[in-house]
Write a protein that binds this DNA or RNA. Structure first.
Lengths: 361, 361
DNA sequence: CTGAAAGCGCTTACAG
DNA sequence: CTGAAAGCGCTTACAG
């Protein structure tokens, strides 16, 4: 008498008998074939008589058999779980969620499901997500990595699961990546402001531990230097991680000198920071007197007056290409590590084209 | 000689030996205890000597053992997989992704991971997601259900997995739900427009197969009737599922009569439709001459001129409460089905308060 | 082409 | 308190 048979006998006296899900054994019994033949048919292996295939398929239908991916992956060589893990900064951030959707679309077309989680730029949370995903035998992972050192992923005994880095390149770890052209994009954006005559350009930046934030700052510095302009420390605000922090920083920039307007343009190097800058400019009625260029798209920003000029990223393409790279690895691609760079698009909507002469003191 | 031993022996001649992840058996051998004792320690069962606990924990650390949740759930009674499935309309929609984040937060605090997927309001995709989640033995599911009949979830042989419906109540299926007060919210919104003197109020609505869209329309009708106003069919546009479709519909409403402005206010019953309406009003310069009230929040809409008045939903609360209900069920709660209703908040920012006298013909 | 046996990593049900 | 055996649902490796 098996454990389950006992359980069922007991249950039937206490509550309604549990409708047990049909297993391959049940299907085999009903079809009058062996378990292994059922396995062959379900997995679409070749070399089974048409007659047996029919018998099995009928039994599958009749019993409403559904394959147990979890159990099958236990013994299967390579242990494919048909799932991948996705580490995002925050599943609710528009950039992250667009990227998520693109990954989902690629995975879905291959019958693979996606676990997604938010790291909140917290290394412990990131490590926890990686551990959890590993513990569930994900076939691979795509991650927006926090911190400046991913060498912990090489830890002995981590399963040999391919990882693709998206949005930010890996550091101290060799793996494929798909990132936006952060430095070149920023440089181009700041050059665009300089071309309108701006000389005093404020900078709002994310945590400097985030490599993209660093690259975008590098682009800002590089454009200024190219134009023989000095980087003026009071005009630079970094390590901002929320709209609220950007609002405070933006206020401080505008208050630097109460008599004169100390800066005529702002470069906001991330979408939440652009929102913070916008809120302050509009609150003070300065939206037509301080130029603003944002890195990353902000929803509805084209309907504002002035429209918000941005360097648009393409989160959908980032996600799609990262997923394609990952599945190529899972399909056995052993070629050298690839690093894909996706360009930004400068979208002029008005705020980034306010000429310096309209910026009164 | 086991399968694995053979595999390793062969591999060692061909490639570098695969670093195999440590199993409970390895830990047991190293700690000099039985497999079962390791299992007891790892699962924090009571009644193990402190001495053995120490031995096991040392071995766990030394071998970097990580528990295989997948394998453990195979034999475990109840088969808890410590994962839940989340069916959203689109993981990239701001409403969905905020809800997702709230669910993640509750799940994360309990060591549970979340599979999320997009149904795109397509019943086949939804059914596919449910099947996939079931196939992976999720412990429970939270879903924004598409369609008007969820009785298929009762299908014989579906595992007895609790489901909580969020955003839309279940139909022909008995389960917990957490929904916004759609009808009352809409009625209140339309009454608000009527209070400013509006008599010709256009309606932009989502697919009428979606119950929330239906309830919001009911609220619109109810408010008009209360005020002895007729529902004028040409002013009603439904079954709109994207910004683009809303743009077209909004254009048609404004073009209904080329000499006079046939309507003075718009009630947009969903966030994408509000965006569509906004785009047309701003493109035609009518944003100060047609009142607009939206259902659901739209990002940055407070910075537009006029600010966009909305009936704000609370996706975070919807997600949090749905997750709490689900985990209560998983913890054994057998009380009657609960239906939680979350109220909306009317936020006046200008567009919904344009008096009818400012809406020139 | 088909199937009986062993095994994946773990838990259950039981015995000592 | 501890452990040896059987089993979860499936695949592997093999024999016929």
């Amino acid at each position: 008498v098996t454990d389950r048979a006992k359980t069922e006998r007991i249950d039937s006296h206490v509550v309604a008998p549990l409708r047990r899900r049909a297993t391959m054994t049940d299907v085999a019994a009903k079809a009058g074939v062996s378990l292994k033949t059922v396995s062959r048919v379900v997995n679409r292996e070749t070399g089974v008589t048409a007659e047996l295939i029919d018998k099995v398929n009928s039994a599958v239908k009749e019993l409403n058999y559904r394959h147990d991916v979890t159990a099958s992956s236990l013994r299967r060589l390579g242990r494919k779980s048909l799932s991948i893990g996705l580490v995002l900064e925050d599943v609710a951030n528009p950039f992250s969620s667009s990227l998520h959707r693109a990954v989902e679309d690629v995975a879905h077309s291959r019958g693979v499901v996606v676990f997604a989680g938010s790291s909140d730029e917290n290394l412990d949370r990131e490590k926890n997500l990686v551990e959890v995903f590993d513990g569930r035998h994900v076939d691979g992972m795509i991650m927006i990595a926090t911190g400046s050192d991913q060498s912990y992923l090489r830890e002995t005994d981590r399963p040999d699961t391919p990882i693709v880095f998206v949005d930010r390149p890996p550091q101290h770890f060799d793996a494929d990546s798909v990132v936006t052209d952060n430095e070149a994009g920023s440089r181009r954006g700041v050059e665009h402001l300089i071309a309108s005559g701006h000389r005093r350009i404020g900078f709002l930046g994310d945590l400097r531990s985030i490599s993209t934030a660093k690259r975008r700052f590098d682009g800002y510095v590089s454009a200024l230097q190219q134009a023989n302009l000095a980087v003026d420390p009071p005009l630079v605000k970094r390590d901002l991680c929320s709209v609220d922090e950007a609002v405070i920083a933006m206020g401080q920039l505008l208050d630097l000198d109460s008599d004169t307007l100390p800066l005529t343009a702002i470069f906001a190097a991330q979408n939440l920071l652009t929102e913070g800058a916008l809120r302050v400019l509009h609150a003070r009625g300065l939206q037509h007197r301080v130029a603003l260029l944002g890195f990353d798209e902000v929803l509805l920003s084209d309907l504002l007056r002035p429209g918000v000029s941005v360097l648009a990223q393409d989160p959908t393409q980032l996600g799609r290409r990262a997923a394609e790279l990952l599945f190529a690895r899972l399909d056995g691609d052993r070629s050298p590590t690839q690093h894909v760079v996706v360009p930004t698009t400068l979208i002029s909507r008005g705020s980034g084209e306010i000429p310096v002469r309209d910026c009164q003191r």
